[in-house]
């Protein structure tokens, strides 16, 4: 058994090597860039960039919008995905094909979705078109992952529960939730990851790099500074976002530890 465990570690080598080269190295470069004064003079300046970025009023606005997006859209997304995949489990025969309707949005390229969205929600001043676009685009993914998670649960557990007379939501709250809570955690994390990726759709939807204030997210801030050649603001904003995300992850893992049986 001991040698087996040792050998398992060797399995990690390829993934780690690739990760180091294509993900860790760039991340270290981003941190280095956030500590120098300017891409060309390369003078070491320490946390001055961070202070400058944090004092910037528009960065705080972007941060607020991004966190708002994570706080409102991601829970709604996860809950609907969980409910839909549960209901879809119950369907028999042809009704099973309904699941394809929810998976489809994930497959549609961005350009056509944005064309449709601009027709349906043109000129509405609220932030909801982008939230709906976010939910629309990512619900398929979560349903796939949750359905796959359900398939790993054994049937016997449910037989026993049914014998004790549990049914409907009580059954789910007591048995399904704890059993797949690791999957629930990572659906939330995936939701957070994808809340950053919604920038491309919202950029096309608004068509300008200066959207209305309510949907000016971090990505816009970074993109605008990329085009203004000061990569330092982008790098420091990025490092700060990853710190915030780290906090969310740690809290999530702690909560999940407390919930699982």
């Amino acid at each position: 058994m001991k040698r087996y465990l040792l050998k398992c570690r060797l399995l990690l080598i390829p993934s780690l090597a690739g990760l180091a080269l294509f993900y860790v190295l760039p991340y270290v470069r981003v941190i280095y860039y956030s500590l120098i004064e300017n891409q060309f003079s390369r003078r070491f300046v320490g946390l001055q960039n961070y202070v400058k970025v944090f004092q910037n009023e528009y960065f705080r606005l972007a941060l607020k919008n991004s966190l708002l997006l994570i706080a409102t859209a991601v829970p709604v997304l996860v809950v609907t995905a969980f409910l839909l995949s549960l209901l879809l489990l119950k369907m028999k025969g042809y009704w099973k094909l309904l699941r394809i309707a929810f998976i489809f949005p994930m497959l549609v390229p961005t350009a056509s979705v944005v064309v449709v969205w601009r027709t349906l929600f043109d000129g509405s001043e609220s932030v909801w078109p982008v939230y709906l676009l976010f939910i629309y685009k990512n619900i398929g993914l979560l349903i796939i992952l949750l359905s796959a998670a359900f398939s790993t649960l054994e049937g016997e557990v449910y037989e026993a529960a049914r014998l004790d007379g549990a049914y409907g939501f009580a059954l789910h709250r007591k048995i399904t939730l704890p059993l797949i809570s690791p999957t629930l955690l990572f659906t939330i994390l995936i939701g957070v990851v994808y809340s950053f990726k919604v920038f491309r759709e919202s950029y096309l939807y608004f068509g300008t790099s200066y959207p209305p204030d309510h949907s000016y997210t971090l990505q816009y801030y970074m993109n605008n500074h990329f085009f203004k050649l000061n990569y330092q603001n982008l790098a420091s904003a990025a490092v700060m976002t990853s710190l915030i995300v780290a906090v969310i992850v740690v809290v999530g893992v702690r909560l999940q530890k407390k919930f699982t049986v």
Binding site: Y27, L189, V193, F199, A238, S242
Partner: peptide, 15 residues
């Protein structure tokens, strides 16, 4: 998980 969270736009230039 941390590296997974990093938005693509940030690591475009270093990559």
């Amino acid at each position: 998980i941390m590296l997974m969270m990093m938005p693509l736009q940030v690591t475009l230039l270093p990559n």
